[in-house]
């Protein structure tokens, strides 16, 4: 059951794994802000390279990683781009500032421009970058570090325990889910073959026992927590959160630089000196796009 999850419950041994929870969560926030801030392909490429370098340094199992990128490619790369082409082919112009049409249907209802292709590609690449940062984060952190890290960033500790407790119960609930599903199948519930409305109705039969038996656990778990002083103090300490090491300070230095860069980028390049269009495109002249850098 365990190896079906991407997130790992046992900390690894590479330099990134060894950072503490606070550093990891901070790093993820910094990268996310940077990704959200930019539509410049060159910047995204740099962030992507950084993330993948980090991922590679953790020597992951590449199979699920490749699967995630593949999934994204189908969902957003192919279907998403197709929708752009079908619904709003003019996006090429609005997003990059130019339009070089190289194919169109009669009457010009549907057409394809090089800029549209670039826009679809850049938008997809933004999602790729976003995913790569998520993978970096997921692979590096354990659920306990996540809870501790969130807490040290002023998230109320009760919310943080929700996170770690949820991770604790997921394998149990996943097991109950399959067991209940199996037993309902033996009684005649068919989840695979049925028609859509029927399928939904059959889900009800599975969900009722699953919900009842899952929420029946609440009493026991909360008793065992109450009996061990949960909620006694205003805060709590974390067994899994080791103190910051040299590596953490270096990483945090990098993170601070990143935040500064983000602030500068957002203030200067996205507001004071904002380009006329969102997307940088290599062949659109800077007079049009406003991407003078």
């Amino acid at each position: 059951m365990n190896n079906r999850f991407l997130i790992n419950y046992i900390p690894g041994s590479t330099p990134i794994h060894k950072l503490n929870g606070t550093t990891k969560v901070l790093g993820f926030i910094a990268i996310t802000v940077a990704i959200i801030a930019t539509f410049d392909f060159r910047v995204m490429l740099a962030i992507f390279a950084l993330c993948m370098l980090g991922v590679a340094s953790m020597k992951p199992n590449w199979k699920p990683v490749a699967f995630m990128f593949g999934f994204l490619f189908v969902m957003n790369g192919i279907i998403g781009s197709l929708m752009v082409f079908l619904i709003s082919p003019e996006s090429g112009l609005t997003k990059t500032g130019m339009e070089t049409i190289f194919w169109q249907t009669e009457g010009g209802k549907l057409y394809m421009s090089w800029e549209l292709l670039w826009y679809a590609w850049a938008m997809f690449f933004k999602r790729v970058t976003s995913l790569s940062s998520a993978i970096l984060f997921i692979l590096s952190i354990t659920p306990s570090e996540l809870a501790a890290g969130l807490n040290s960033l002023k998230m109320p500790y009760k919310v943080c325990t929700i996170v770690s407790l949820a991770f604790r119960t997921i394998p149990d609930i996943a097991r109950d889910f399959t067991d209940i599903k199996n037993s309902m199948q033996m009684r005649g519930v068919e989840l695979e073959k049925a028609s859509l409305p029927n399928k939904l109705k059959q889900y009800v039969m599975m969900l009722v026992p699953l919900l009842m038996s899952s929420f029946a656990k609440v009493e026991n778990i909360s008793n065992s927590m109450d009996l061990r002083s949960y909620g006694k103090c205003k805060g709590r300490t974390w067994y899994s959160e080791h103190p910051a090491t040299k590596g953490d300070y270096i990483a945090r230095g990098v993170i601070v630089l990143m935040f500064l860069w983000c602030a500068f980028y957002i203030i200067f390049f996205r507001n004071i000196n904002a380009p006329a269009v969102d997307f940088w495109c290599p062949w659109v002249p800077k007079e049009i796009s406003g991407y003078w850098f």
């Binding site: 026991n220 778990i221 899994s240």
Partner: peptide
């Protein structure tokens, strides 16, 4: 108190964490 349901009362994500649970709540330094 050691409760009946040994699964339910294991709230930590590792053995060490679960043993430390009450100390964490008492804010004992790591």
């Amino acid at each position: 108190t050691v409760l009946q349901d040994s699964d339910a009362q294991f709230v930590g994500l590792s053995v060490g964490e679960d043993i430390a649970f009450s100390m964490e709540n008492e804010m004992v330094p790591r």
